[in-house]
Structure formats: structure tokens, C-alpha cells
Design a protein around this nucleic acid. Structure first.
Lengths: 208, 208, 208, 208
DNA sequence: AATGAATGAGACTTCATTCAT
DNA sequence: AATGAATGAAGTCTCATTCAT
């Protein structure tokens, strides 16, 4: 019967909850399972969070913290800014596979009330708006391939982030991750149009 | 209290279940809600399906049917084959938003026993392997940009499909969808390396 | 495992609930105890009432029905009207000792939300207003002893009803009850002032 | 976090408990609510009382002390004795509305074990026996109206006390209370039969 | 003397499932 | 084929009580 200060327990509970949701699904997000994971009894959970919904709030707080740490990137150039965002997100997905899975699976949206659902939406929108903005800026500068709309490019970029998260569990070591990240970015940057050159030449500068 | 033959009811129940899972999440996938949707009482559900898990099986059957209808594409050329697959998937997402949402959200994987989970995995793997194979073939022919690995390309392609599914709810009409589909494919095909040409020229042939 | 139509079960549940509240107190008003009393499992209760609060509502409905059956008395003369009310109430208290106990103990007021509490208040007020009105009318006619205010008389009448309920459990047979009722009314009617006579003479007419 | 000696805390806890039971009902009589009221944490309560039942015992002690302070009245004449008792009780009701409410509502009887229930019963019986005895004595002396039995008179007297308690919350000031008390007693004393007189004349002596 | 974390029992409620009708 | 009552297993949450600090 180990007693820990509430702040530590709260973090443990959030962590365990994310793990459970990611690995077992929203339906198994139960006080009992969390308690098992954390090492206490189900009733004890409610000393730290009043309701299960509050835990969901806590998860959202944590996700926001992790996802938007150092956000938005400050680079002047839109492609550089986008690259920084992309790399940050990929690293987050690898470092926090649970968050990656939760984001992808959209479990949170139905887990708590409308407030939580709205927050999930907000999280998504924030990322999307950032990406859209970078791409729009690039397009305005004539740096987006002419046959690719901002919307389409956005789909590719966000999709790549989602899919990296999806693929991550199978990636064992960090070296592989780095490599994949670099290669995927290369693929994305093929949409980067530089007048007077062909894309292939330019890409060399971005190799890691 | 309308009586309908089992086959019709079964289809109705599957349909209703998918709708519920897609719109309200796995946690609300209950006999009562299905019954409400279908217009009968919860007890009656079990005349058609022995258990809730059986309904999940039925959903999987239905999804497999829709997703892999006319699969795999038969084109000789790997990029064409991949394009056909991509376009089919995007159309499916639009025609069956529930299936899209369920697939994306991974709800099914945790809803029934291990057998269902394995089937979900199989569904995913089947798509992934197809994509991998197309890209590997393209790479072997030297038709994949040299700085993009098969793995990275796979991430981009699958990611794009995921992201289109993610975006679909906000797309109102079919015309927009078609356009987005075309543009996204353009972006993807930037990874198509054709020796002696630059990609931009080539793209025209793929316009719809 | 006996199955009964919901209407019957509802009545049984209300009855059992009143019995429990009356005999064991509000704290023991639990689904389990009701179920034990009725002969089913706790979960089954909720097929008939959605929440425990709904049961409280049902109890209030039942109490209102019993208490205000044939209310208000129609007699022209205020003392006769009051007597009819008094006798009716005493009979109710004897026939429904649980209701009597619940009314006295005020358990219901805190059992459900504010709506129920307000209804309890309303029930009380309705009786009180009737009594007040009768007595006021009597006073206006000069038929209330001059040294007794309407308010004071009200306290005596309502108090007597409460106390008869209180005493009832110890009264075995109906004959005793009838006698007590008559005697108490005699005591109350001492407050009936008939100009030109002394009260004692008059009382004879009211003997049963 | 103020530390106070046990004796003071005990009194505070008893006081708070009575307030809670009176105003919120037996169901909300919890360590947490008491602690909130007293200004400490729930755990701390149990340094002063071993169990919640012990608090109930304490409440009973306190109630006994208040209710039977200066009891029984010493007057020789039974009606005077009864009057003294009645007035004392009414004053107690006004001075300690919580006690009045608790007594009336019978919450205590079900709150703790059988011992407490027995004590509550004892408290009530003691009052009832006193009243019965006074009335019996009056009857023996021929001072009880001939058509009113001792039992019936007891019902009226105890009922009046109950009803004053019931009415008390609505009585704002002390003057009103005093007046009501006097008037109610007038009504009760109508049962006082004084041979050779009519009751009305006599009452003057009891005016306050 | 008091706090604050933890337990464990028990409350309400939901839900898959069974079964008489 | 369907309804509707019932069970029993969970699940959320409350609460008395214990105990380390």
C-alpha cells in the first residue's frame, strides 16, 4: 500500500489511461483497469479525479502539452516551418506511441461529454490550420507545385504524420525512425516547386 | 412490430451498428441503441445474432466486401495499379463514410474477441501489402524517386488515404471529392520518377 | 423467476419502498432492499423505474392519491367539513401506517431532488390551507372559541392527526381506532364555540 | 489547520452533525460534510469519535440534556405540571430548531445500531409517560372533560407539540412563538374540566 | 491534533443475454 | 419473428474507516 502525492498519482493515472485507451480501446477505459495498471484499487482513483470525464480532460491536457510543445515553429520560410512541424510531430509520435494511437483512433471524441469532444476537434483544427497556413504561404510565393492544391498538400502532410504514427509500433530503433522521417519528408517535399530548377536537384540539401 | 425475414433484419442490424459505432463510438454500441435504430426491441436482436460479437463479425464481413470489391486492381503497370487502388479507396470513403470512420478509428479491433481483432489486422495488412508491392515493383523498375524508400512512399500513400477519410466529413459534394482525389494523387505521383523527364510534364496524363 | 407486467411491479415497488422508508429510514431506501422485498434482483428494479428518484416520485403520486382521495370534503358547515377531513385523515393513517410514518418523519423531503422536496411541501401546505380555511370560516361565524386563534387551532388539529399516526402502530383493532378518533375529535371540538350554550351539551350530536 | 482540544471539537462535531441531519437529512450525515462544516478533514473526525455511530450517541446525549433539562416539572397540580412541560418543550423547539427537526423526523432512530434506536424510543416514551401520567392524575381528580379519554388527550397534547415543531421553521420572531404557545395551550386546556364552571371563564388565569 | 492517500464495501445504473409469452 | 421482464456481471462513484506522515 504505497501512498504517493496526488500530483504524482494524477500523472500516473493519465499515463495509464492513455496506455489503456491506446492498446485496448475506449471500451476498456475503466477505473478498474486503470487501478490495476497503477497499482491501487478502483475506488482510490476518485480521490485524484472526481469523474472518469475528468481523467479524459487530463488526457487532453497532457496531449496538448506534448503535441504543442514549442509550437508553432518560428522559421521564416514556410517550407522550413512546415518541416520543423513535421519533424516535431514525427518525433512526438515515436516518443509517445500512445498519444499517436489515440489521435489516430479518435477514441477520445466519444469518451467524455461535448466539451471534451470540442477540445479534440480544436486540437486537430489547430494542427490543420498551421499546415494549411504554411502551404498557402508557399503557394503564394509560387513554391507549391502548380498541379497540387493547398488542400491536397495538406492531406498529404497530415496523412504522412498519421501514417508514421501508425507504422511506428513496428519500428524498433531510433535510427530507423530518423531515416524514415527523412525519407518521408523527401517525398513530401517533392511538392515543393522551385522555379527554374527541377525538384530533384534541390532536395539534396535536405538530406539528413 | 413489423416482422421481417432474418436476412433483411441482419443487414439492417449491421448497417445500424456501423452507423452507431461510426457516429457515437464503440462504447455506445449496445443492443438497445441498435434496436432503437432498427425499430425493434433489444431482445429481438438476439434472434438474428447470437451475441454482440457476432454482429461485429457481420460488420467485418460487410467491410471486407465493400473495401475489397474488385480487389486487387489488375493493371500491369504498378503506378497505375496503385492509382486504381487509391481512387477506389477514396470513392469507398465517400460512399460509405461509416466504414471509413470505423476503419480509421480502429474501434472494431477492440470490440470483439481476438478473432475479430485478427481479422481487422488482416484487413489492414492486406491493403498495406498491396501498396508495398506496387511500390516495390515501381522501385525495381527504377520508377520510384531515388531519395524515397518504398517504406516512406507507403507511409505517404496510406497516410493520404487515412487523411482523406479524416477530411471526408467536411466535404459536402462529390465534385469536390473528385477534385481533391485528383490533386492528392498528383502530389503522390511526384514520387514517380521517370528517367529523362521531369515529373511535371508527365502528370498531364493522369488528369481526370 | 416470476414475471409480472410492469404496472403491477411498479405498484409493488412503490409499496415496498414506502414500507422500507417507514420502517428502516431513508438511508436504507436502496434498490437492493426493495428488490429483496419485492422478490427480484436489484438491477431489475430499473426496468420499471429509471432512477431511484423516479421511485420517490411514484411514492409521492401514491401518497397524494391516498391522502387527497375525496378531498376536499363538501359539507357546508366549516366544523362539519373539518370533522370529515379529520376523520378521513385518521382512517388513512390507520389504513396506511407507512404513509403516516413517512409524512411524520419528513424523510421524503431529502430523498430526491428539489422537485420532490417541493412536492412534499405542497402536500403539506394543501392540508394546512384546508384546515386554516375551515377554521377561519368558523372564526368568522363566531364559532371558534374567542381565546383560540385560527393558527393555534390549526396546530391542534394537524397535531392531532400527526399524533394519531404516531400512536397507531400500537393500536391493534379497528374498534379501538374508531373510539380514539371519536374521543380526539371531542377534544378538538372543545374549541368549537356555540354562543348561548356551553360546549359540553352540544358535543352529543357528534358522537358516533 | 487549527488544532483544538478534543472536548471542543467533540461539541463542534455534534453541533454540526445535528445541523446536517436536520437540514439535509440522514443520508447526507457523512464524515465529509461534518468536516466541511467544522473546518477540518474527514479523517480527523475519527480522532474524536471512533465511529459515526458514536457521533449519533453523542447527539443523543446532547438531545437528552436539552430536552430533559429541569425535567420533570415539579408542580403539584397535574394541569400545571403539564403546562410547564408543554411550555418547556415549545421553548426548546424554538431555541434548538435542529433538535426539534431531528426529534420530529425520527432520523436518529435508523441512523445507528439498535442501542441508539432503543435510546430514541426511550426518549419518546419518557415524554409520553409523563404526559399520560399528568392526564391520568387529572382524570382521577375529575379534571378531564368526561368525553375525552386520557389516551385522546395525550394525542392532542403530544400532537400539539409535534405540530408546533413542524410549524416552527416558519415562525420568525420569538414574540409570535410566545403568542402561539399561549393560544395553543388555551386550546388544549379546553379539555380541562372544572366542575361548576365553564372553561372559558377560567382560562383567564393562564393568560401570559 | 490533523492531513491526505488508500481500502473495501456498497450504492446506483447499464447492459448482454435468456426466456416465457 | 418479436416483445418485455428478469438476471447477473460490470462499471461509476460514495463513504466509513485506517494509517503513514
Amino acid at each position: 500500500m504505497k501512498r504517493k502525492p496526488t500530483e504524482i498519482r494524477k500523472a500516473e493515472i493519465i499515463e495509464a489511461s492513455m496506455k489503456i485507451i491506446a492498446s485496448k480501446g475506449a471500451k476498456r477505459f475503466t477505473a478498474q483497469l486503470i487501478a490495476d495498471e497503477v497499482g491501487m484499487t478502483a475506488g482510490g482513483i476518485f480521490r485524484h479525479f472526481a469523474t472518469m470525464d475528468d481523467i479524459v480532460e487530463g488526457i487532453l491536457d497532457r496531449m496538448e502539452e506534448v503535441l504543442f510543445d514549442g509550437f508553432p515553429p518560428s522559421a521564416e520560410d514556410p517550407w522550413t516551418r512546415l518541416k520543423e512541424f513535421f519533424e516535431h510531430r514525427v518525433l512526438v509520435m515515436v516518443a509517445h506511441p500512445d498519444i499517436s494511437k489515440i489521435l489516430l483512433s479518435d477514441h477520445l471524441a466519444h469518451l467524455a461529454g461535448e466539451i471534451a469532444a470540442a477540445r479534440v476537434k480544436g486540437l486537430k483544427r489547430r494542427s490543420q490550420q498551421f499546415v494549411t497556413q504554411c502551404l498557402q504561404e508557399a503557394a503564394d510565393r509560387g513554391e507549391l507545385a502548380t498541379d497540387v492544391s493547398v488542400n491536397a498538400a495538406k492531406v498529404v502532410v497530415l496523412g504522412a504524420i498519421l501514417a508514421v504514427g501508425h507504422a511506428t509500433p513496428r519500428i524498433a530503433n531510433q535510427t530507423e525512425t530518423k531515416q524514415l522521417k527523412g525519407e518521408v519528408w523527401c517525398a513530401i517535399e517533392k511538392m515543393h516547386h522551385i522555379s527554374g530548377t527541377d525538384n530533384h536537384r534541390k532536395k539534396g540539401g535536405h538530406r539528413q
